[in-house]
Simulated assay, not measured.
Amino acid sequence: MKNKNFLAYASALGAAFFWSFSFIWFKIAYLGYEPITVVIFRLAISAVLMGVIAGALKRFQLPAKKDIWLFILMSLFEPFLYFIGESYGLMYISSTVAAVIVATIPLFTPVAAWFFHREKVRWMNIVGLLFSFIGVGLVVLNGSFRFDASPLGVALEFMAVFAAISYSIVLRSLVGRYNTMSIIAWQNIIGVVMFLPLWLGFEFQDFISKPFHPQAFRAIVFLAVFSSTLGFVFFTQAIRNLGVNLSNTFINLIPVFVAILSFFILKDNLGIQQIVGIVIVVSGLFLAQIRQRRKKSSLGTMEFSTQRKG
Rank of each mutant, 00 (worst) to 15 (best):
N3G: 14
N5A: 11
A8E: 00
Y9D: 08
A10V: 09
S11T: 05
L13M: 14
A15E: 02
A16V: 02
A16N: 06
S22G: 10
S22L: 04
K27I: 06
I28A: 01
I28G: 03
I28V: 15
Y30K: 09
L31F: 10
E34M: 08
I36E: 05
T37C: 13
T37D: 12
V38W: 06
R42N: 03
R42C: 08
S46G: 14
A47G: 09
A47N: 12
G51M: 15
V52I: 15
I53Q: 06
I53S: 08
I53L: 15
A54T: 07
K58I: 01
K58Q: 12
R59C: 03
F60S: 14
P63T: 02
A64P: 00
K66L: 01
W69A: 12
L70I: 01
M74G: 15
S75A: 13
E78Y: 13
P79C: 11
F80Y: 11
L81V: 14
L81M: 15
F83Q: 03
I84G: 02
Y88F: 15
G89V: 05
G89K: 04
Y92Q: 07
T96I: 12
V97H: 05
A99T: 06
V102Q: 03
T104Q: 08
T104F: 11
F108L: 14
T109A: 15
P110Y: 03
A113Q: 08
W114F: 15
F116T: 08
R118Q: 14
K120A: 12
V121R: 00
R122D: 07
V127N: 00
V127G: 04
G128I: 05
G128T: 07
G128D: 03
G128H: 05
L129P: 03
L129S: 12
L130G: 01
S132R: 06
S132M: 02
S132W: 02
S132V: 00
G135L: 06
P151C: 07
G153N: 11
G153Y: 04
V154L: 04
E157S: 07
F162T: 09
A163C: 04
A164H: 01
Y167R: 10
I169S: 03
S173C: 08
L174F: 01
L174P: 04
G176Q: 04
R177L: 06
T180V: 15
T180D: 07
I184W: 00
A185I: 02
W186F: 07
Q187Y: 01
N188C: 09
I189D: 02
I190G: 06
G191V: 02
G191T: 02
V193K: 05
L198A: 14
L200A: 10
L200C: 13
G201C: 04
Q205C: 06
D206E: 12
F207H: 05
P214R: 10
I220V: 13
F226H: 00
L230D: 04
F234C: 15
Q237V: 10
I239R: 07
N241V: 00
L242H: 03
V244C: 07
V244P: 09
N245P: 09
T249C: 12
T249W: 01
I251C: 00
P255S: 06
F257N: 07
I260D: 08
S262L: 11
D268F: 01
L270N: 08
I272L: 15
Q273N: 12
I275D: 03
V276Q: 05
V276H: 07
G277Q: 04
G277L: 06
I278Q: 05
V282K: 11
A288Y: 08
Q289H: 14
I290G: 09
R291F: 10
S297W: 04
L299R: 15
S305A: 15
G310V: 04
